[in-house]
Design a protein around this nucleic acid. Structure first.
Length: 849
RNA sequence: GGGCGAUUAGCUCAUUUGGCUAGAGCGCGUCAUUGACGUUGACGAGGUGGCAGGUUCGAAUCCUGCAUUGCCCACCA
């Protein structure tokens, strides 16, 4: 088969991918030791972003490498219903149609979103295929599949039975825009400038007043007490008395509570149990009523008519105006404080009291902390483990209810006659159920998506039901974004230990964010997002993979670099042309046989590729992807193309060329799957696919011959350098006297150094090449020689300085005493070589003078 | 307020128990060349490793302080 001049990825990638799928190449091979990775499921409804390209490429490199190592690799794909994220998108669709969620029943909404997602589900998978991801598609799991729901219900039931689930009225983080509560972890805290207003609350006789400080004056309409510190002398006589809430005629008590910090503000705090977590707790302790004044739609309720139905910020201004008129404002000051925001809408989170389902987290966290402290999970980078432990140590109970229709229904039913009576039941397709003559009504909330995705490792492997993939649990590695360490990784560890009594994965690899080319975080609103599929289309899937993995270290946020993608593209083309050259040389139907290294170049390239294969394997196993990629790039480009292929033009050994190409394709495959497989398909001596081939095993070679080739490289390098430095007017001849290595390789040297000739001479003449420790001269004219001599004097000076440094090191008693022996040996050897160089240079210059 | 990370060539980044002359890609300069590849080849320039101290025979690497910068966590109104 004749290869085109340049590699055109578009022409081959989809065909190659189909070939893999048709051959069922992604399925775990039966015999090997299991190796498993589960894909963090991307949003079924969305498009892949550039961060996905990084995360899935890293996973795929591992999958392909271990597959070539003969392991039974299960790389299990999935897609996420992405409850809240998708709901937000769908609600926009509803709005565009002039409708809203209240026009439909929950079941109607659920099936509408299902259809909406179903239409788009294929897109994301097609994109993963374009990235070359070698996941077992037949085992793909959607986060709303029956097996997910069943397992989640099983876990929930067990927790319920063990008393770890409770339902209660608590302050929750509420998004008035999306009308759902959030977990604490989903609230985005921003430090910003604000005002602290001081407001007077008159005593009942209006003679005295107590001044409180607040950042949210509108909530005073919901105040049910004023709190002061019990030991605060300023307010001691007021404790137990009543004051009037401004702008209303409500009377509220002044209470004492340790929570108040006398040093902050005025030392008196208004207590709004319905809209502040601290106040809620104070309210619980003092049995205060909870007066909700902000509705779930974000508008004021239960307030005097002038404030009714106002948005929070409008209400704030009106309250301040009214206080001003009533002369109850006692000043304000500028402060910096932290405000919780809805990470999705960018609007402030409203703390609200709501009946929600919670999981007691302390016992779950404790087991996770123990496992982490026992080093049961290898963390890359290690520092994140500490961070996770800290998070787990301070964990609070988890609100798992969401007031959105798109998600897994919470399998709980409420007694129609007794609101406190809740039972577990999985019959969520029914709105009402009958149990022993009592009618129960279904809970309308759904689970927080993370409650189900937190169980992903044992769900996808069917571990609980002991399915075909059960032997792949626990996973070998969980590769995912560092940004979801707490929300996902932490929860998987806790839930994994809870359900399966073992950690869900043996290692965690956290990748950082892919930033834009200027190092800024990408976002749709900034318009700086990079679409991976566009990169694939313009430069090829392999180029994207090579480029995005290059120079990227674990856990670090790093910029995307088009330059690196281009370098990756060029590398693919280089590989392509190596193949083109070799295949052309070998011809059709080349009868491949055992490779026998004969020339010095043969021995050398065997040594180089042997050690590259070993080193690259080790680097992949240690998750040092960028270094492995770099090693592949250089061994193939520098060693194979620039030295070995060039050498082969003068000393050809077809069997070795075939072996070199074969080996190069194997070691490059995990990082450049498409181009390597494309080339592999053109090799006459392979029937199998490269994806199923084995990682190269070392070939025997002669160490001395390999070292001799290195000497020739030095000689050639020096000749090139001198010629480049002293262009002169003509090409030079290389002369030698009795050197058999040069004699045997004269054509090779001439070609590599681009000399006009290499010939034996009777006597030394011209410019001596000293670096290789071989007797060789360039036959140059007088002027060139003179110029060279000046350069050599500089080099002699440098060499003498270096010798002096080395001598100094060796004469240092402490160094001899403390440095490791091999290092001292190296220093001695280095000194010897430097001295030999000095001698040669000096001799050369003396001769000439 | 607490924690974590970063600071190395013009740019983006490597350098893993402290030890070869601190490397790579891109960019830059000089030259070559059209029988594998211009998505090329050869050669080269370019770094007081943020700053100031300390430990050590030896520090980009360990310690202390400072500066700049990014991220995460946090219910003080």
């Amino acid at each position: 088969m004749k290869l085109a001049k340049n590699y055109d990825p578009k022409q081959y990638e989809s065909t190659i991918y189909q070939m893999w799928e048709t051959a069922d190449a992604f399925a775990p091979s039966g015999s090997g030791e299991p190796y498993s990775i589960v894909m963090p499921p991307p949003n079924a409804n969305g498009n892949l972003h550039i961060g996905h390209a990084l995360t899935f490429n890293l996973q795929d490199i591992l999958a392909r490498y271990y597959r070539m190592q003969g392991r039974a690799v299960a790389y299990i794909p999935g897609s996420d219903h992405a409850g809240f994220e998708t709901w937000v998108v769908y609600e926009k669709v509803l709005t565009a149609e002039g409708k809203n969620r209240f026009d439909f029943s929950r079941d109607q909404l659920y099936s509408q979103v299902w259809n909406f997602v179903d239409e788009k589900r294929g897109t994301m998978e097609a994109q993963l295929r374009a990235l070359g991801i070698s996941a077992i598609w037949k085992d793909t799991v959607f986060t709303l599949d029956d097996k997910v729901v069943n397992t989640v219900y099983g876990t929930f039931k067990r927790m319920w039975d063990e008393g770890m689930i409770y339902r209660g009225e608590r302050i929750v983080n509420y998004s008035t825009k999306y009308q759902t509560s959030y977990a604490d972890i989903e609230v985005e805290h921003r430090v910003e400038k604000g005002k602290l207003w001081k407001i007077a609350y008159p005593s009942l006789d209006k003679i005295k007043e107590i001044v409180v400080a607040t950042t949210r004056p509108e909530t005073l309409l919901g105040d049910t007490a004023i709190a002061v510190h019990p030991d605060d002398e300023r307010y001691k006589d007021l404790i137990g008395t009543k004051v009037l809430v401004p702008l209303t005629d409500r009377e509220i008590p002044v209470i004492a509570d340790e929570y108040v910090d006398p040093a902050f503000g005025t030392g008196a705090v208004k207590i709004t149990p319905a809209h502040d977590p601290n106040d809620f707790e104070v309210g619980e302790r003092h049995n205060l009523p909870r007066l909700q004044v902000i509705g779930f739609d974000g508008k004021m309720i239960n307030v005097p008519p002038q404030f009714m139905n106002l948005e929070v910020m409008e209400a704030r201004q009106k309250v301040l105006d009214a206080l001003q008129r009533e002369q109850l404002l006692r000043g304000d000051e500028d402060i910096e404080h932290s405000v919780g925001y809805d990470y999705k809408s960018g609007l402030p989170i409203q703390p609200m009291v709501k009946d929600q389902w919670f999981i007691s987290m302390k016992p779950l966290a404790k087991r996770a902390i123990d496992a982490l402290n026992n080093d049961e999970i290898d963390f890359q980078p290690a520092s994140r483990k500490k961070a996770l432990i800290q998070y787990l140590e301070n964990i609070r109970d988890w609100n798992i209810s969401r007031q959105i229709p798109w998600g897994i229904p919470i399998p709980a039913f409420q007694n129609e006659k007794d609101p406190t009576d809740w039972i577990f039941d999985a019959r969520v397709d029914q709105e009402k159920i009958d149990v022993n003559g009592t009618t129960y009504t279904r809970e309308i909330d759904t689970f927080d998506t993370w409650f189900s995705s937190g169980q992903w490792p044992y769900i996808t492997t069917d571990y609980v039901t002991n399915g075909d993939l059960a032997k792949f649990y626990p996973l070998n590695v969980m590769e995912t974004g560092a940004d979801i360490l707490y929300s996902w990784v932490g929860r998987m560890i806790m839930l994994g230990l809870y359900t399966t009594d073992q950690v869900p994965f043996k290692a965690v690899y956290l990748n950082g964010l892919v930033l834009d080319e200027k190092g800024k975080k990408m976002s749709k609103s900034k318009g700086n997002v990079i679409n991976p599929i566009e990169i694939v289309e313009s430069h090829g899937s392999d180029a994207l993979r090579l480029g995005i993995v290059a120079a990227r270290s674990v856990g670090q946020d790093q910029a995307f670099s088009t330059g690196k993608v281009l370098a990756g593209r060029n590398f693919c083309n280089k590989l392509w042309n190596i193949a083109r050259f070799i295949e052309n040389k070998l011809g059709e139907g080349f009868p491949v046989a055992d490779p026998q290294p004969k020339t010095v170049a043969d021995h050398w390239i065997v040594r180089q590729l042997n050690s590259a294969a070993e080193q690259i394997g080790k680097q992949i196993e240690e998750y040092r992807f960028a270094e492995a990629g770099d090693a592949i790039y250089h061994v193939i480009w520098d060693d194979v193309a620039d030295w070995y292929i060039e050498s082969s033009k003068k000393q050809d050994n077809p069997q070795m060329l075939a072996w070199v190409l074969d080996t190069s394709l194997r070691i490059a495959h995990p990082f450049a799957p498409f181009v390597t497989e494309t080339i592999w398909q053109t090799l006459s001596w392979h029937e199998e696919l490269l994806i199923k081939a084995n990682w190269p095993t070392p070939l025997e070679f002669n160490d001395i011959a390999a070292a001799e080739f290195e000497q020739l490289q030095t000689l050639v390098g020096e000749a090139r350098f001198v010629v480049a430095e002293l262009p002169g007017t003509k090409k030079y001849d290389l002369l030698y006297q009795t050197d058999s290595l040069i004699a045997d390789n004269s054509d090779l040297i001439q070609h590599l150094a681009r000399l006009s000739g290499v010939r034996q001479a009777d006597q030394a003449k011209g410019l001596r090449l000293a670096a290789s420790n071989r007797e060789a001269w360039l036959d140059v004219d007088e002027d060139t020689l003179y110029e060279h001599q000046t350069n050599q004097e500089v080099r002699l000076g440098e060499a003498r300085l270096r010798a002096k440094n080395l001598e100094g090191r060796l004469s240092n008693a402490s160094y001899i005493d403390k440095a490791p022996p091999h290092l001292i040996e190296e220093t001695k050897k280095d000194l010897e070589e430097t001295q030999a160089l000095i001698e040669r240079l000096a001799r050369e210059l003396d001769v000439l003078e």
